[in-house]
Design a protein around this nucleic acid. Sequence first.
DNA 1: GGATGCCCTGCAAACGTTTTCATCACCGCA
DNA 2: TGCGGTGATGAAAACGTTTGCAGGGCATCC
Lengths: 370, 370
Amino acid sequence: MTLSSRPSLIQIAEQAGVSPATVSRAFNRPELLSEATRTRILETANRLGFRPNRVGASLRSGSTKTLGLLLPTLANPVFAACFEGAEAAARGAGYSVMLATTGYDRQREQAAARHLLEHQVEGLMLTVADPAANATLNELEADGVPFVLAYNESTTHPFVSVDNHAAAGDMLEQLVGLGHRRVAFVSGPLADSDRAARRLEGVLTRAADLRIPTPVHLSLATHTAAERTRLQSLLSMPHPPSVLFCSNDLLAAAVIAELATVGIRVPRDLAVCGFDGVAFGALMVPSLASVYQPSGEIGHAACRLLLDALAGQPGTSRQLPHRLWLGGSVTAPHDSLTEPALTPDTTTTHPTTAPLPAPEPALIRRFTPC
Amino acid sequence: MTLSSRPSLIQIAEQAGVSPATVSRAFNRPELLSEATRTRILETANRLGFRPNRVGASLRSGSTKTLGLLLPTLANPVFAACFEGAEAAARGAGYSVMLATTGYDRQREQAAARHLLEHQVEGLMLTVADPAANATLNELEADGVPFVLAYNESTTHPFVSVDNHAAAGDMLEQLVGLGHRRVAFVSGPLADSDRAARRLEGVLTRAADLRIPTPVHLSLATHTAAERTRLQSLLSMPHPPSVLFCSNDLLAAAVIAELATVGIRVPRDLAVCGFDGVAFGALMVPSLASVYQPSGEIGHAACRLLLDALAGQPGTSRQLPHRLWLGGSVTAPHDSLTEPALTPDTTTTHPTTAPLPAPEPALIRRFTPC
DNA sequence: GGATGCCCTGCAAACGTTTTCATCACCGCA
DNA sequence: TGCGGTGATGAAAACGTTTGCAGGGCATCC
């Protein structure tokens, strides 16, 4: 019933009649001790409720066994999944993860990175707006802090992502295969996301390959009232797009909701697809067509890459395979019969494109508890 | 270009020609120093790129300025928002948050709590299955570790949540006001979530108050194939429910998707509502009717409560106000004309029930970057 | 001019652990 | 009997910081 704080290693040593060093060894190098002393120590520790103090250990050993993870926001389930993947990988290696979110704000990004470094994280995993020009990254580099990018792609820094260029191209190809010719790519400000920029590029490149009209790019900025009219004016052009390819699923959902308010039905009047493959997209009605990227694995792989680097095994950047999920939000355009459709075998194939397995049969299960 | 790790406070002291103590004070108690020495130290620190080592500081001061947050999963945006709220509150007070997820697993819960405590977090915020009987909580209590529950309600432990009982009752009342009489409450196993249990209770109590037939409870467990048929058999009863009240939004979305596969349209054939008020619910078409709970603020308030307790100002549990969001997934039942509707003023009113402000006009903005 | 007090700074211990080095007992072997 | 080796443990320093205590300098006041 005492509120006495837990005993330290020293008290265990005294109680067990050994030196502090021996107690330490009982936990970290048990093979060095005799059976007898080891069990005696473990028993005393148990009895007194000993809990090793990582702060002391970290200070002395110079290793906190902790990694930092810097993400834009957890409101996007993509990043939430990334955290869980990274955390699992870290835990598997005896490491902890310290998470911080930036809200897409450069100031907070830098502040958070420094904060994590003050906590002596041994390395960092992060997603930034544009790795090619990023103050935080430069600082890390200058400091010699090991780090790995997640979701970003870079020629100069280690990263884990999907091949955004190819993935977006693959989705476009599917759309074209369904008969779509007039495509609009919808995104936020490209300066805020190199992913969106690459996806747009991928769409444009593949469109040229497939010889369809150059897709329109609609970049929605902050001010929504105005953006709403821009979206509508896009759709009231003489030859409006038959499909909107949104740079991420959250945006796609928002766009679909927006369209609904002006009476445009998806996919009947207009097809819409997204990018990310978030779980709730599969629950939408119709389900959201999307490019699935394995977020949990991205986090996991980024963490592994970082851990390997810390262990002196630098490893190499990875592009994990994406999958196309052709949900009900995309169908053939209603005027598709009036335009010649490409035959499937004129389209190029990509090794990373594979049909997504049947929709998760146990979604209910995963969402049941709370 | 040197990979030299950052200098310690000692090097700064040497360079600036002062004692380590003075350097420490330059950062923590600057008012104690003369203008001259303070600026000299700060300059040297800046020049050498000094970064205070929190591990050393924590060890000496006995305070890590870090709190633990233990949540079931980030896959549910409710908890993601909770983290961001808690993190903001902590940051505002100079604290950090260390997050761990349990995946609704008791073993992991306990392990994670211990892990956080080894990291010397000064207190814990957590969401558990049932606070009335929880090994982790008992251990914390026995250890005298300060903690605050989030989302859980408890008579014996401090918590921050909404009034689940009243909130669910209020939603039921709205449904009844629309003409619904046959209600089914759908949840996961109640043992996994005291929130769901309280919501069910709230529904049953209010149903009795309003003198409508006792709502049916459908508890969906793990095995989905079987659950699917249970759901369908519920709907093929002689007098099937006209509305499904799901214990959370993710479940509601999954149920709606499930219904769609068997040709049941929402809300035309059956109304569905959820609980949580997650952002993507507002983006669904039709938008998901739900009980909105302020997750960010729950996290924020829980953190404040914990911080106050650490500061010796114990504070009291809080139930934050909920809001009803009457999305398009709920309309009057198609047979409502055949049944007498209660007049609005026969229904009781609750202070925490207030109409939700117009749907977030800038949803697109929030989801644009990635 | 000496006592008083305040402002600024330094000394040194302490936080809890890890780790290097040394010690000691004991065994086997020549 | 002596010697090298091995296995088990201890002594003590170190990690980077904070903080109680003390002291020196300087001004103020009687």
